[in-house]
Design a protein around this nucleic acid. Structure first.
Lengths: 230, 230
DNA sequence: GTCTATAAGTAGATAGAC
DNA sequence: GTCTATCTACTTATAGAC
């Protein structure tokens, strides 16, 4: 076997090992940040969790904030892309609206720690110039949701007197504050909410929201299903 | 003038002065805690705000946590008493429900800083034995809200299939997360939400919630007014 | 009641040996 | 890549002078 191939394989393994270590550290950090908060978590605690000394963390990360950024970045950017994609789908506003709710809850369930952190540390993010991208992405996603609601009013599906700013703020806060359903891997729920299945929660929220925003007369129409995920 | 009277007056002034100082410190602390969080605020910052040295704060308070307790205690206990009083009022469940929402929003507006702190530091409170009373009071208030919703279902005003746990969780989170509307005294809103009047917000939330929980057919009935405040 | 001065502990982060 | 050792800064809280 050519020595270049050997060398390449070794380098690959090295990269994988390094990436695994980094991922393990991020997992420990995410868990701590989600449960106790970013500022209340010390780098020593994270290091202890992965059985390493605190100084050694700085071989993988330049600062504690870099860990935070790694944990939340993809979640926020995916959320942004998802909202824009769904908002511009070619179908009735009500279907798009249900899809926004369903996919948001699904993402929240999949990355509950990242979402808990994004929600709980929002004051920190707002103050930090490094995280301006996060605030911007979430604001754009907000506008995408809002445009779907406005489309629905124009189509006559949602009632005309609606305040779209207040309504979307309320709905997004409602969904996002659910990130407190954070559940430990050991199974202990931090909130009784963790006992509900994703399907049950989606049906509940889609119903709760649609009954509120629908035009008079349409209130008892069946709740449409979400668009298929792509 | 009898010297006892003079002495009493002087003692009163002393108490007032001391109480004023204490109140000024608490006001500064509340503002910082609400905007930046309890753990992110240092006693030095609070001391700077009232132009005193950090060590001198400890003449007025034993610990930083005692300040926090002083700020949130009355707000939580009042919230608890209010919920129980309204829940046991002698009238239709829907009227009690609207009253719960109206008075909750009113209290939130009056003590926005305390409410912001209670909401944002909930993980801290949950971990601290000293604040067990707070968790208990809020849990009892939750059950009072829930009993009103259940009464409404029994009366036929609210729809039968409702999950009262999920519904009340959602509504209370929705209202409480609004504590983020925190506005500075200098008038700068931290959130555009601060531009709405209390009356507008109450009408919005009462409508949003009632449309969701009402029984089929009752959806377009007028929203009842809240009970008079006593 | 506020000051000066400081204790005792912990934070995030770094340098260099192995 | 992790360890040992440590730096600098900052934390809450205290002691005693004024």
């Amino acid at each position: 076997m050519a020595s270049e191939a050997k060398e390449a394989r070794r380098a690959g393994a090295r990269r994988r090992g390094q990436a695994d270590r980094r991922a393990a550290i991020l997992a420990a950090a995410a868990r701590r940040f989600a449960e106790f908060g970013f500022e209340a978590t010390t780098v020593r605690q994270i290091a202890d969790d992965v059985q390493i000394l605190s100084g050694s963390l700085y071989h993988h990360f330049a600062t504690k904030e870099e860990m935070l950024d790694d944990i939340v970045r993809d979640a926020v950017l995916d959320q942004h892309a998802r909202a824009l994609r769904i908002a511009s789908a070619d179908c009735e506003a009500e279907v798009r609206f249900v899809t926004l709710i369903a996919e948001e809850l699904s993402a929240l369930a999949e990355r509950i720690e990242a979402y808990a952190i994004i929600f709980n540390e929002r004051k920190f993010f707002r103050r930090s110039a490094e995280f301006a991208y996060l605030i911007k992405a979430r604001k754009d996603a907000f506008e995408a949701w809002r445009s779907v609601l406005d489309d629905g009013v124009r189509e006559g599906a949602f009632h005309a007197g609606i305040d779209s700013y207040l309504t979307i703020s309320t709905i997004m806060r409602m969904l996002n504050s659910g990130a407190d359903w954070y559940r430990h891997e050991d199974g202990s729920p931090l909130d009784a909410m963790a006992n509900y299945s994703l399907e049950a929660l989606t049906a509940f929220y889609a119903g709760f929201v649609l009954r509120s925003v629908r035009a008079a007369g349409r209130t008892d129409a069946p709740i449409p299903g979400a668009l298929p995920r792509r």
